[in-house]
Structure formats: C-alpha cells, structure tokens
C-alpha cells in the first residue's frame, strides 16, 4: 500500500519548467485556491448573516448557530447521521468482508457473483430509494418489514437500503486487497496449522489496513452526503424521524428561503468532513510510520 512513500516521487522536479508552464501552474493553483478555500470561506462568512433568499443579509453574529443547535430538526438530523454512519460502517465493512472472503475461496462463477454484488452500487440512490420504498411498504412489501411507517424504526430502513447499495463495492475493494496477499503467507499459515478463519482474522486482515482505511473513508463520506436516498425513500418522514443534515441544508436554502441558516448547517457539515479527513490523514501517517519502523 504505497500511500506515503517519501523519496520515490516520480514527478518532475520543479524549478526547471518553462516560464509559461510556471504561469499555467500558478493560474491552476489560484483556481484551486479559489474553489477549495475561498468558496467555503464565503459560505462560512455568510453563515454569520441573516441572509434569506439572497446572500445579502445583515450581520447577526452566531445567531444562526444558536438557532441551529436549538432546532429539534437539526438535532434529530445529527442523531440520524450518527445512526446511519455507524450502521453503514459496521454493516458495510462486516458484510463486505464476509462476501470478500467467500469470493476469495476460489468459488465457481466468481465473475458472475462479483458483477451481481456491484449491480446495486451502479444504481442511483433515487432508484434504490424507490425500490426499497416498495419492499418496505406495509401493504405491498415484504411481510413483517414495515419499517418505514414507524417513526422509531424508519431510520433503520434507510440504513438497510444504504447497506444493500454500498456493501458490494466494499466487498470488491476488500477482495482486491485479499488477492494482493502473497501466497507464501497462506502456505506458511497452512504449514503452521493455523485455521483458515484465524489466518483471515489475525494475519490477513491486519495486512489490509490501507484498504480498510480507504473503505472506511468512502463509506463515511457517502454517509455524510446522505440526501437522495432519504428524499426518495421517506422524504424525511414519518414526522422528522429520518431527517439528515444534508437535507436540512437543502431545505433551509430553498424551501425556508433562509440562506444564513443553510450556510450555518453546511459549515457544521464541512467541519465534520474536515474532522473525518483529519482522522484519516493521522491514521495513514501512523501506519506509514509503523511500517518504516519495521
């Protein structure tokens, strides 16, 4: 897993480029700066205003954040995001790892199974949402699974649909990692008489840290973005029971016509993404250090 490999940089050394190339690079850097730094800053700045339909409201300090963190709907949304993220992360990694191991046992028609696993991922969340809306419909759907009309259970219906959609890609990612494991390791384990499941759990999976970290970040990112699945599956209901932060942002901006509130909520989401990215960067750095020490 060459995530960080200092000294092996194959890119051309800077300093010898033609002046025009320098200009292009400077322009690109400027554009990147504009897109990735200035726009978010603009959003943060306007979250401190009382902007309604147009971003021209008066300065109100932290009032939007006060309203945000006392809003029942936002608190429910954040709670739901936590449930969804935990459910999706544990579920997708668990199911994904299980499926990957099954595929890794050199079964027949592996290609077919891989394709089948990936099909849900190729469907958009909107299609997924509508399909599951019917499957979980109390009248027409799977018996005993009428999750969506119960406010306490509806969010788990969303998790279920998310897992159905997202587990396959995690399985394929892990499978690619499993295939990169050297056969010698398996031979050695067999010679030592270590059970297959123990080999997976204590030898192989620890070697897949990089793949697992990538899968974790992918799953978490898709959890934070969660919007279209909820819109298609439940519309946030029953009541407010399946509201999520991204939908809060969208509704505030376009339905409530309250840009300031929407910007405050999106700033909180941005903060959350930064925290996740920071954790990932630290984890990668830490793993790289451990490898160097070995």
């Amino acid at each position: 897993m060459p995530i960080l490999s200092p000294g092996q940089d194959s890119r051309p050394m800077p300093g010898r480029a033609a002046p025009w190339a320098m200009g292009v690079m400077a322009a690109m850097a400027l554009v990147a700066l504009l897109i990735f730094v200035l726009f978010p800053l603009w959003t943060v700045a306007h979250s401190l205003t009382g902007s309604r339909l147009l971003p021209n409201g008066p300065w109100v300090g932290l009032a939007q954040y006060e309203r945000l963190w006392t809003s029942e709907r936002w608190l429910i949304s954040v709670g739901n995001l936590a449930i969804y993220a935990v459910g999706l992360l544990s579920g997708a990694l668990g199911i994904g790892a299980g499926l990957a191991v099954l595929l890794d046992r050199r079964i027949r028609a592996e290609g077919l199974f891989r394709a089948v696993l990936l099909y849900p991922y190729a469907l958009s969340f909107v299609v997924t949402g509508l399909a599951w809306q019917w499957m979980l419909n109390p009248t027409f759907g799977l018996p005993g699974l009428a999750l969506l009309s119960d406010p306490d259970l509806a969010i788990h219906g969303v998790v279920m649909a998310g897992l159905w959609q997202g587990s396959g890609i995690v399985a394929v990612l892990i499978l690619s990692g499993l295939r990169a494991i050297d056969d010698d390791i398996w031979k050695a384990a067999r010679l030592d008489g270590i059970a297959v499941w123990k080999t997976y759990l204590f030898i192989v999976f620890p070697m897949l840290r990089g793949v697992l970290a990538t899968a974790t970040v992918l799953v978490l990112a898709s959890a934070i973005k969660l919007f279209d699945l909820v819109v298609a599956l439940t519309g946030g209901g029953p009541g407010l029971s399946t509201e999520v932060p991204a939908k809060y942002v969208y509704d505030m901006m376009f339905e409530n016509q309250n840009l300031g509130q929407g910007f405050a909520a999106s700033t909180m989401m941005l903060t959350l993404v930064l925290v996740v990215m920071l954790c990932w960067a630290v984890a990668v750095w830490w793993m790289g250090r451990r490898r160097d020490h070995r």
């Binding site: 009541g239 029971s241 016509q257």
Partner: peptide
C-alpha cells in the same frame, strides 16, 4: 407568513403528527 416560518411550522406539525 414568510417561507421560513411556514416551513418551520410544517416541521413541527409533521413531528406532532408522527409522535
């Protein structure tokens, strides 16, 4: 009523109806 208030009332009533 302004759209912000209408939408907040919608949220509250939806919550009431489902709880």
């Amino acid at each position: 009523l302004p759209p912000d208030t209408v939408a907040q009332i919608d949220d509250l009533m939806a919550r009431f109806w489902a709880s």
